[in-house]
Design a protein around this nucleic acid. Sequence first.
DNA 1: TAGTGGTCTAGACCACAGA
DNA 2: CTGTGGTCTAGACCACTAT
Lengths: 237, 237
Amino acid sequence: MTERDTIPASGKAAYITEEVRRRIIEKEWRQGDRIPDEAALAAEFGVARATVNKALQLLADEGLLDRRRRAGTRVAVNPVRKATFSIPIVREQIEAAGKSYSHRLISQSRSPLPARRAEQLGLSPGEVLIHLRAVHYGDRQPFQLEDRWINPRAVPGIEEVDFHHLNANEWLVRNAPYLRAELTFSASNAGVRDARLLDTEPEQALLILNRTTWNDIGPITAVRLAFHPGYAMSATT
Amino acid sequence: MTERDTIPASGKAAYITEEVRRRIIEKEWRQGDRIPDEAALAAEFGVARATVNKALQLLADEGLLDRRRRAGTRVAVNPVRKATFSIPIVREQIEAAGKSYSHRLISQSRSPLPARRAEQLGLSPGEVLIHLRAVHYGDRQPFQLEDRWINPRAVPGIEEVDFHHLNANEWLVRNAPYLRAELTFSASNAGVRDARLLDTEPEQALLILNRTTWNDIGPITAVRLAFHPGYAMSATT
DNA sequence: TAGTGGTCTAGACCACAGA
DNA sequence: CTGTGGTCTAGACCACTAT
């Protein structure tokens, strides 16, 4: 290395990532500016070009840099940053909060698919799927209300499972890995029934998470999770 | 290559990623199983070990594999999958939906920080920050209600900006890149004032996004965004 | 102690798009 | 056409940890 022999964050690529990030944050390199090319940075930091490439790709994935062949690398003008959150297994989520987990199956049946769910899954309305409704508790307090449709054709073996003592979330996570998922967050006023099951008042605002997953056979499951009032789902960059 | 000369997804690493993903989804490799080590896979696919490493690291980041030195690589037992969503610039979000964007500044002042916001920012209650309230419209319909506190010490130059014609979101994105952000989603019943500004009814459930950002100086801004009823924020894996 | 993943290197060839 | 990033290779050394 040249005089740039401060302690690297962890590896050389990580150090370069942090150093480039710092130059952007401190406006040494301003939005829209072209930054030196990989070969130049490799020379400056005394590393191989592949190392610089790895560092810059990370920042490009984060949205801080725009990289194009021939045109070079520029500091993003409108950095569209991304945030990540983990899709929790409800039991682990509750236990991580130091509470004891329990759940109650309200209904399990084979039913014809209502129109809205059919659209979500890309199946025909009226097709018969498995329909589950359950409540998940932390220290006996209702935490989450689950309303789930499962496509048995995508999950061989599901027909024989009894979810009274096993939670569908975990069974699916272990037995039906998915290729693709779609999630949406929204808000909805609690209905009379939701309110009773979640031990709250009708019209109370609830955070709703809808999730649909697919594997190579087709749609696996569509679930609507309604959270107890006051719960906030968090994410970081 | 050996007989494995089907069309690669795009590069060799991408092809290996997809092939390993397929083996997991189709249960050729089951949850908890140890998979062949990098050297063995490199031999099988006829590539360098670094290429296998890149492919497997991607799957480990996704949560599908657990990798540990000496212990090898295993298919994750409880795959904690991650989802990503992009943090939108409200104007781009509205224009991407084919609507014309406008916004209205309701108030801009220097005010003492209330306790809840102080906690969110890690500053002292009563400290004087810049407080903004604004509504963002798509085709003249209210879309989002913004309530923002900005720490002028972290953003030199902010004191001179007039946000009547410039939207704070964009100014900050362009002028105050952040190092770290925290986001939470929650739901809340509209108050009388919220309802009026969003052109809806009091008690209507609203999706709330709270976001706080930091740079190397300290906290930059904390903002509470309330969305018009019916809006759903989506994410994918 | 030894087997595994983590990282880096020097070099190469290629794909893309700007001039 | 040519400069830039995208990707791959063969090899090396290191860091961790299971045994």
